[in-house]
Design a protein around this nucleic acid. Structure first.
Lengths: 198, 198
DNA sequence: CATTAAGTACACAGATCAGTATACATCAAT
DNA sequence: ATTGATGTATACTGATCTGTGTACTTAATG
């Protein structure tokens, strides 16, 4: 029971996650996952009763990983900002997004990609992706909690739309400036909504 | 050579386009396309030497169709706007996006979806999607040609990022307000960039 | 030592996949 | 009327896919 470093299950999910992200989910066969993980097929099907279950496990893992990456990025970049703390956190958030979208391994948002591969909105995979996006909005709302806003949720949704636009634009058109573009817009929005027009 | 209504080729592409859009490209087999089109397999492979070629043909068709839809939408909605014509056209553009994203058959952007299914940026399918996105930016730039702007291309990219964000958000989270959110942001940006701050 | 849990190796089922081969039908143009 | 292009029907290949069946190994635990 107690065994070296990682459980086989965890190792499978980690390997599958990388492959699904790089090659797409439907573009990656179970056998490919097993080869890369160096694990027997039976072991996989002892832990997951179908590929779909493995897919869902990878998305849940990615959700954890991504949120952690975001929070670490915000922490890292917010110190380099000046002015209102909540304002600085939002800017740091877009810096984190930029660092990610310009990184070497970047291949779009795993959840947006998965949603595209499973277009049906009632499919479990699609549902999980929607949940993740809702979590991100919630997180943005938390980042802005120090600001005085007419409708904080509304602004969080705006910033989330902006984020998704930047991610997709960066991936489809290989644009390395997408996140900066989004950040620039975010600054405009924040300025508008925190200092009333007159 | 001269035959009824539509050529078999055109019919195949139209049918494939619908299925690829609704069920995903890798989620749709050649046989499914043939069943729906009522065409023999040999006929398909006389017109296209591989599935990839058919996929590319559907994307090219979708590009034509989508741009036509946008232009028709702009024409339809711009008359309902007041004020500066170029400004009104951009608002009408977002109205067109909204009408699309809230329509019954909406299942995301076919090019974003295809990019996700073919994540490798050098894959022909991915390249075509990037080209389409560049065309959209160009079109937005044309819409704004009457406005006095410091950097028209820059603003067009911003609006394109906004558009993609709205489309993706609408699809993944089934949010019917996404396009309105984007439009609202667009208004802010246009106002900021057309009437200098002081 | 015996039991039990977890993993492995490997063959295999059954479906589906893209693409080909072959023989036949239709029909317009020469 | 013959030819040539286009399409059809059907069977088939070979690869790949998810998932299962089975017998063996390994190691921790009692």
């Amino acid at each position: 029971m107690t065994q070296g470093r990682k459980s086989k299950r965890e190792h499978l999910v980690e390997t599958a996650q990388q492959l699904f992200y790089r090659e797409g989910i439907k573009g990656t066969g179970i056998d490919t996952v097993l080869e890369h993980a160096g694990v027997a097929k039976r072991t996989l099907y002892n832990h997951f009763k179908s590929k779909d279950e493995l897919v869902i496990a990878t998305l849940q893992r990615r959700d954890q990983e991504f949120m952690a990456m975001l929070k670490a990025g915000v922490k890292k970049f917010e110190s380099r900002q000046t002015g209102e703390p909540a304002f600085a956190r939002v800017l740091a958030y877009f810096d984190a997004i930029e660092e990610w979208t310009t990184s070497k391994q970047f291949s779009g948002c795993m959840f947006i990609n998965a949603s595209a591969e499973y277009p049906r909105q009632d499919h479990p995979v699609h549902v999980i992706c929607a949940m993740h996006k809702r979590l991100v909005i919630q997180y943005i709302e938390e980042l802005m909690s120090g600001l005085t806003l007419a409708d904080p949720h509304d602004l969080a949704v705006q910033l989330a739309v902006l984020t998704d636009g930047a991610i997709v634009n960066a991936h489809t058109t290989s644009n390395r400036n997408a996140a900066q573009v989004a950040k620039q817009i975010a600054v405009s929005l924040l300025t508008l909504h925190t200092q009333p027009a007159h």
